[in-house]
Design a protein around this nucleic acid. Sequence first.
DNA 1: TAAAGTTATGCAACCGTTTGTCTTAACGAG
DNA 2: CTCGTTAAGACAAACGGTTGCATAACTTTA
Lengths: 336, 336
Amino acid sequence: MGVTIKDVAKAANVSPSTVSRVVKDSPRISQETKKRVRQAMRELGYHPNAMAQSLTSKNTGNIGIMLPRPNDEEFNHPFFPEALRGISAVLRTHDRDILFSPAGNEVEERRALQRMVLSGKVDGVVLLSSRISDELITWLYSINFPFVVIGNPRPLGLERICWVDNDNVEIGRMITQYLIDKGYEDIGIITGDLRFVVNIDRLEGYKQAMEAAGKSTNRAYMAEADVWEDGGYNAMLRILRNGKPSAIVTVDDLFAIGAIRACRDRGYSIPYDIGIIGVNNIGVDQYLMPPLTSVEIYAYELGKTAAELLLKRIEIGPEYSDCVIIHGRLVERASC
Amino acid sequence: MGVTIKDVAKAANVSPSTVSRVVKDSPRISQETKKRVRQAMRELGYHPNAMAQSLTSKNTGNIGIMLPRPNDEEFNHPFFPEALRGISAVLRTHDRDILFSPAGNEVEERRALQRMVLSGKVDGVVLLSSRISDELITWLYSINFPFVVIGNPRPLGLERICWVDNDNVEIGRMITQYLIDKGYEDIGIITGDLRFVVNIDRLEGYKQAMEAAGKSTNRAYMAEADVWEDGGYNAMLRILRNGKPSAIVTVDDLFAIGAIRACRDRGYSIPYDIGIIGVNNIGVDQYLMPPLTSVEIYAYELGKTAAELLLKRIEIGPEYSDCVIIHGRLVERASC
DNA sequence: TAAAGTTATGCAACCGTTTGTCTTAACGAG
DNA sequence: CTCGTTAAGACAAACGGTTGCATAACTTTA
């Protein structure tokens, strides 16, 4: 398929190295020559071979993205595309592409990341959502490879990691407090998989708010949900078998949506019998009945910031690291 | 960062070519030697450099994905991740990665695709959703590059294109007919951007069904919506300014969700005053009030099939082409 | 027992760029 | 007029693999 740098060189009557330097607009080449070479490039339809470039220059222009969960689950959550959108927005202005290695489970995922990194297909990696004591993080850290985490890498004792996250403890506290302020008495919670820091944190915030209000948390009203709507539905059902809380904090709108349906199936009306609050402020929230009160977490910003940190880390080197916290904003609607 | 093929060769006391052949498990190498070389690879932690491999072997292991719209819009539609999931599922079993070039508008998009392809970063491309007379398609076709379209490349007179799509005319007909059978009289339609074949087709199906039922289509009850919920909301409002249809076909659930809210804001109740039907059967449909009647379009299958076609096209060559139609299935719920 | 195959491996050229170093011509200064 | 600079390019050695061909050691076969 190809017109190469040599063809251009021949056509412009210069050496390949000159063409290469023209491509990178090196000051060592005179304006005249540049003009001539560019002309030749245009006429021949020359496009540098990215692989050859990467081979010598040692960078690929690719950023890897990992979704540390069985991908299938994450894909279907609106958070993912929204964060990706933020990442894209930044990468776009830096002419970088996104590389994404499909994996079906944790071990494939680990292998995929290793292949990506060790075979030199990417210059850096963004990890979406961190597990507790995430081994991917420790590995990348140990080989000193540029990466950034969307999510909090706690409790890893690793300084100098780049990450960006919401203050999820604060968010948990905020929504619980909101319910308390509204006068709800028995407040339960539906969390997600507690191996993920985000869920741990939001649960922690819930506990803190409850404690601060002098309320005891009731294990009967706490449930860990499986993925998304159905998970929320089932979790709510389990709670309702134990009694009737007056309100439920859910760590995710998708859980909330399922929970609302469970309540309704059991004959409870929202928000009158049971109040429900979610987190993430996904697109459909305002179209639900009742519209779901939630927390805007700025997934787009999260992605955007992550990309920015990563680019900086790549450019500056291992001595650079930074983390940023993005605060959530309560979006009041009618579900509690 | 690296241990190279030469290091392994030295350690195993063979030539680099032998190591290369061991990596590809060539039958020309004896079992003993293979064992020895593999041992050395393991001890040194060898990983072949993907860029160098691509440079000589002429293939990258990457499949490019293009979202032919301003990305931001497409990203936020549940169709995208679902199709991507199908694509991933196939690619995963073939050790291929997904490359994805962020673009903000049509010209960036075109440039991004060209760069991907001409610089040799991908072995093939999947185009999500086709425009009418899509120039990306004609270009890829003209340079004989492997690609597959999710969507119908009509009316391009190009034989030998690989594509996969729903039968969107049939879907349009089906949902309209369903409304007619339910006894609805004045049926309107909300379509999306009519530069996209999918919208053209669904509209066409609507018209066919109306005509077959001896109903005349009423332009006052037809509107072209901007993106998603808000688009559907505004389109519905426009229609309601012209009168009150008894039911509305929408070409997308997200439009339907917006339309429902618009009806409600104007004091109409669904499905009693106005019936609404959507297409895509997105996750939240069943959680809406009322649950939305829709059409399952099997986005996952669409993605999966597309990936399979593309892989075949890459393997077999330009003489291969195929297309597959995936039929939708009506999912009855309570919105009409 | 010599010619003809096999089998297992090495050699070296090549893939398309990049980049440090060398060359050459022109120029200004002393 | 000579010499040191500088500017603009050419040369060639990488980068890390792949692969067609040559080779050497062993079989077979007649």
